[in-house]
């Protein structure tokens, strides 16, 4: 049980995928203009990340390893992720058409979210076991969601600030992301995984 807690703390705070490992920056910058959209994106990404982390773990352990095809892992994972995203898109479209509309192009773009592939690759390297990989994927997704939601709440405030002209828009967003990353450095050394 403690192991799982440590994995969660490690992936959410210490090795936050966005703010410490700098993965998944495209949705982090692209979907963070409004808090509501950010929340929808977080939910969708959480679903995809957890599921794809598990699926790619299974594909790696029960398909690639027995056949000695580990060198095909990247291409296999991309395929697995694409399938999971397609599945998520269909679910969201059926259950919440409004969310589907709000997320728009970003939903299929989860496929190219480097955090998803990054989690799948790091997952097989760092943790072993079925439950571990679920926890790892979920923790990574919670970390992503945390960073994205807090960032979007901040950007709503910065949008009305009197920012100097050369820094308006994406530039000040980048500065803010950098300062957030600086704040997350405070968690360094909390757990070693």
């Amino acid at each position: 049980m403690t192991d799982y807690l440590l994995i969660v703390i490690s992936t959410v705070l210490v090795n936050n995928f966005v703010l410490v490992q700098f993965l998944g920056l495209c949705p982090f910058m692209g979907v963070s203009n409004k808090l509501e959209t950010a929340m929808g994106m977080s939910l969708a990404t959480t679903f995809v990340l957890t599921l794809s982390s598990v699926c790619s773990y299974l594909a790696f352990t029960y398909l690639l390893q027995p056949l000695d095809l580990e060198f095909l892992q990247t291409i296999t994972f991309i395929l697995v992720i694409a399938v999971v995203v397609q599945f998520t898109e269909m679910v969201v479209r059926k259950t919440s058409p409004l969310l589907y509309k709000v997320l728009g192009i970003f939903l299929p773009l989860i496929t190219t979210n480097c955090a998803v592939l990054g989690v799948a690759l790091l997952n097989i390297k760092k943790v072993n076991g079925f439950i571990d990989s679920i926890v790892y994927g979920f923790g990574a997704a919670v970390g992503f969601s945390l960073a994205l939601i807090l960032f979007s709440a901040m950007r709503e405030r910065i949008a009305v600030a009197d920012v100097p002209v050369p820094f308006q828009g994406a530039a000040i967003g980048m500065v803010t992301a950098g300062l957030m990353s600086l704040a997350f450095m405070g968690f360094t050394g909390l757990v070693q995984i």
Binding site: A153, M154, A183, F184, G186
Partner: peptide, 16 residues
């Protein structure tokens, strides 16, 4: 310093 910065970045969300 880190605690204050981390809560600074949560403050807009808390306000919400």
């Amino acid at each position: 310093a880190f605690a204050v910065l981390l809560m600074n970045l949560s403050a807009p969300f808390i306000d919400q």
